[in-house]
Design a protein around this nucleic acid. Sequence first.
DNA 1: CTAATTTATATCGTGCACGATATTTTATTT
DNA 2: AAATAAAATATCGTGCACGATATAAATTAG
Lengths: 146, 146
Amino acid sequence: MSYEQLKLDNQLCFPVYAASRLITSEYQPYLNELGITYPQYLVLMVLWEKGDSYVNDIARKLILNTNTITPLLKRMEHQGIIERKRSAKDERKVVVSLTAYGRSMEKKAAKIPELLANKLLSDKLDLHDIVSLKNKLEVLIEMLKK
Amino acid sequence: MSYEQLKLDNQLCFPVYAASRLITSEYQPYLNELGITYPQYLVLMVLWEKGDSYVNDIARKLILNTNTITPLLKRMEHQGIIERKRSAKDERKVVVSLTAYGRSMEKKAAKIPELLANKLLSDKLDLHDIVSLKNKLEVLIEMLKK
DNA sequence: CTAATTTATATCGTGCACGATATTTTATTT
DNA sequence: AAATAAAATATCGTGCACGATATAAATTAG
């Protein structure tokens, strides 16, 4: 492999890093209306889909550690979006559940995926490309997560 | 577009976000040997390739704002990796240059891209996939950056 | 049944990332 | 030439992200 590889443009890693930040910033206007951040939106998607969840399960789904998730959940609790309480069965676990307010956010958020898709699709990048991107990244993720 | 779209798995954004963090963590062991972080490594790649650069040019290449880059550069200056000084021609600009130590890091870093490539390649994801990923992400980035 | 280990969450410290805003210098208008 | 605008960098505040470590409950081993 050549020395040229050191160049920024030749690498996969920088595009993924840059794309991640840019896509997140595309979400911001919509998430601002809901008063949440992108990682908080991810937590909500888990809860909307799965209902009450343990901290650990949320963390595993988002591939984040509890030292990231715990303070994030506390902020969401403080905002009245979720509740946290120790499981009765296993006192080590904490059950995260939606408040009525947190549940009510789902309808407002329902339009976001479509709005985002419209922003990401173009004459240079069609649905097929997006799906192919998603699939390859998922293979990569499965390889890399422990 | 269906309500199902709300599901985490159906979206491109989460895979990009997760892959970015996972890939960055793959760099960590090698970057630890150099005593730098991934964003600092990106700055070094710009300087190794282009030589003395204005803060603004580095920021544009990495698609970062100066409120991220400035403190990052200060930390690198503190570590003796780079120097920062106001341009004589235009007192608004700051020229960033490598120290002898910063230049010396290039040889140690030269092996990193190959090591990373070996980690990312597999039977499920070959060089062709990686190149295709990179190209599509770059199209996406060009669309999204301003 | 007690000790050691594992599991689940939390705390602490550091470094991004970025919106909002400030400061200084250069360029442009009037 | 003075006023205004634009450009370049910096400061401040908040929220991740994560390594290292701590704490407490549950499980397993001896």
